[in-house]
């Protein structure tokens, strides 16, 4: 964030370079600030809210969403979208559960699931790139296809009894004091770190941003646009299958109807984190914060305890709205027409 601490630029610089430079970070910073504010509000409203474990539980309960949001960030940064992620999560869970039930080695199962997810994404990317069909449609078809394949595998829920998976479900990694996280959290945070590195330190990552800034410009600049566009969907597919494995660790079962609508949560997290759906602007750390915001909304609901299912929906919608409005308010000052 060196931009924020830089000395003020001389006045004669054209068109407020400095402000616009900051404006890039504004939505993400606003999200982080607001998350902290919400956490503080929770601490005031509910006893016991202000604890490290409540925060860590946000991570523990949302590992799969974090990973999904990371993959989605890549796609959205290029100006695309991936609606298939929820279904691919369910498909990954089904494949894993079915194969484990058939007595496969867990390592082989995980490898196969990750391969399937990545291939599924790459294929969608190829269709998008080669046939120039809109990502929304291709990935919507991907959503139907993956969900359909789940039913083909099994209509019923399959329980996972594999010792490795159950041990992952129960394992706790102790931190200072009584605080702990699950192994899933470590995996999710590693994914975030890798994504951050790739997006900011590699040519591939910068090409992702360039495509979002202007695809035809990126082509004329001689960048590897087609390859990058296919790869981002591959990455999203891979992240979906990682999320599927994490979800399996969490739920110890495979079920065709699992993770329905999760794609919207992932998209919401990414956008709440400050990424523009038109591409080119946004950060994975923002997406991580976006997931935490969605998580804290859930936590509020659970602390409230007595809400009927419809009030829960309304409150989630309202909190989402309040959040977006506040974010808008904070970024408005730095945004220029």
């Amino acid at each position: 964030m060196s931009v924020l601490t830089r000395t003020p630029a001389p006045l004669d610089r054209p068109r407020m370079t400095r402000l616009r430079g900051k404006a890039r970070y504004a939505p993400t910073l606003a999200t982080m600030g607001l998350f902290l504010a919400m956490f503080a509000a929770g601490a005031v409203m509910y006893p016991g809210f202000l604890s490290g474990q409540v925060f860590l539980n946000l991570l523990i309960d949302n590992t799969f969403l974090i990973v999904l949001a990371v993959g989605m960030t890549f796609v959205i940064l290029t100006g695309g979208i991936d609606l298939s992620v929820g279904s691919v999560v369910a498909l990954s869970m089904m494949i894993a559960a079915a194969l484990l039930q058939a007595g496969w080695n867990p390592a082989a199962v995980i490898a196969l699931v990750l391969l399937t997810g990545a291939t599924f994404g790459l294929l969608m990317g190829l269709v998008i790139q080669v046939f120039e069909i809109q990502p929304f449609i291709v990935t919507l078809a991907g959503l139907f296809l993956a969900r359909g394949l789940c039913y083909v595998i099994s209509v019923d829920s399959i329980t996972v009894t594999d010792p490795f998976f159950t041990s992952m479900a129960q394992a706790r990694i102790p931190l200072v004091g009584t605080l702990f996280v699950s192994p899933g959290v470590v995996i999710a945070l590693v994914v975030v770190a890798v994504a951050f590195y790739v997006l900011h330190q590699t040519r591939f990552g910068r090409t992702v941003y360039a495509i979002g800034g202007g695809e035809s410009s990126a082509l004329l600049m001689g960048l590897a646009v087609p390859r990058t566009k296919v790869l981002v969907y591959g990455i999203s597919g891979l992240c979906s299958s990682i999320a599927g494995i994490l979800f399996s660790f969490y739920s110890l079962s495979g079920y065709s109807l699992a993770a329905t609508g999760l794609e919207l949560d992932a998209i919401a997290a990414v956008v709440v984190g400050g990424t523009l759906l038109t591409g080119g602007y946004g950060y994975v750390l923002g997406s991580l914060t976006g997931v935490l915001v969605l998580g804290i909304v859930q936590t509020f609901i659970s602390y409230e305890g007595t809400l009927s299912s419809w009030w829960t929906r309304i409150v989630i919608g309202a909190l989402l709205l309040v959040f977006i409005l506040l974010q808008k308010l904070f970024t408005r000052k730095v945004r220029l027409t």
């Binding site: 890039r24 590195y197 900011h200 330190q201 590699t202 040519r203 910068r206 090409t207 941003y209 360039a210 979002g212 800034g213 202007g214 035809s216 410009s217 990126a218 004329l220 600049m221 001689g222 960048l223 590897a224 080119g280 602007y281």
Partner: peptide, 30 residues
């Protein structure tokens, strides 16, 4: 080539626009 319409990425920094795709790297990282 510099094409007639400015074909750069408005969302990236000036330095990146100049070097995009040809960034010097050290151990794989830019």
């Amino acid at each position: 080539t510099v094409y007639q319409e400015v074909n750069l990425c408005p969302n990236l920094s000036v330095e990146e626009n100049i070097l995009l795709g040809r960034e010097p790297r050290r151990r794989g990282a830019i």
